[in-house]
């Protein structure tokens, strides 16, 4: 439906009553959707890899400072996105630590992935860790007693904790794809390059094109619903 609305607006060459001052061609809208998905899905995939590894290491091992690490992860879940954007912008600028070793990434998709990674990783790690810790010790003991290796025990625990882990990934995805502050700062909202659904919505709303902002918002909500539905299916409908 959204596509037909856009098609009407683009093909007719005039403003429809619904889409006042329609600013983009169809290709530009797809590009915005593509950039949003590209940045958020890569960031969430990397965050999941990192978060699950940390959750297993912290959840399975007792070591000095473990409580501090858990507190740090939980604190990270509430990082303000604008602050994260500022820190990442500095890190990837020519004067920042990454910029000085050749990773000058200001106003690039890679910088946006990095900032979304910083935002999503603590959420995925924290919720996954809680799910892993929540698995009964008896289950791990049983896997070990059946002749399981450490990897077998870890995989069995992950399987037992999968609903919590999927919830964590969903929460991380929600944080990443709906985030506007940090991607605006590190990406610069460059049309065709770093413009995402959220930064485009912000721009359109500021310029008074509320109808178009609402359509982009509807696309964003539909995408999140679609991805949640897919993960729900994978999780057996219990998430």
């Amino acid at each position: 439906m959204v596509e037909s609305l856009l098609a009407v607006a683009v093909d007719s060459g005039v403003s429809s009553p619904l889409l006042v001052d329609f600013p983009y061609g169809r290709g530009a809208v797809w590009n915005i959707v593509y950039v949003s998905l590209y940045v958020s899905l890569i960031a969430v995939a990397l965050s999941s890899l990192f978060g699950l590894t940390v959750a297993m290491l912290v959840g399975f091992n007792d070591f000095p400072g473990r409580s501090f690490v858990i507190a740090l992860i939980n604190t990270g879940m509430g990082f303000p996105s604008v602050v994260v954007g500022l820190v990442v912008l500095f890190a990837v600028s020519s004067e920042g630590p990454l910029g000085q070793i050749g990773f000058t990434l200001v106003f690039t998709r890679e910088a946006m992935i990095l900032s979304q990674f910083v935002l999503a990783a603590p959420v995925i790690t924290g919720i996954s860790l809680a799910a892993v810790i929540d698995v009964d010790d008896g289950v791990r003991d049983a896997a070990y007693a059946m002749g399981g290796t450490r990897l077998d025990v870890a995989l069995t625990t992950v399987r037992q904790a999968r609903y919590g882990i999927i919830t964590g990934i969903l929460a991380g995805l929600g944080r990443a794809i709906s985030e506007v502050g940090s991607v605006l700062i590190v990406g610069g909202n460059i049309e065709g390059q770093t413009r995402t659904l959220t930064t485009a919505i912000q721009l359109e709303a500021r310029q008074g094109r509320f109808e178009f902002a609402l359509i982009l918002g509807a696309i964003l909500v539909a995408l999140v619903l679609l991805i949640n539905g897919l993960l729900l299916k994978v999780g057996g409908g219990r998430v």
């Binding site: 009964d136 008896g138 289950v139 049983a142 896997a143 007693a145 069995t156 399987r159 037992q160």
Partner: peptide, 8 residues
């Protein structure tokens, strides 16, 4: 074990 500790 005393508990069955079955997997999902």
């Amino acid at each position: 074990f005393q508990e069955a500790n079955l997997f999902d």
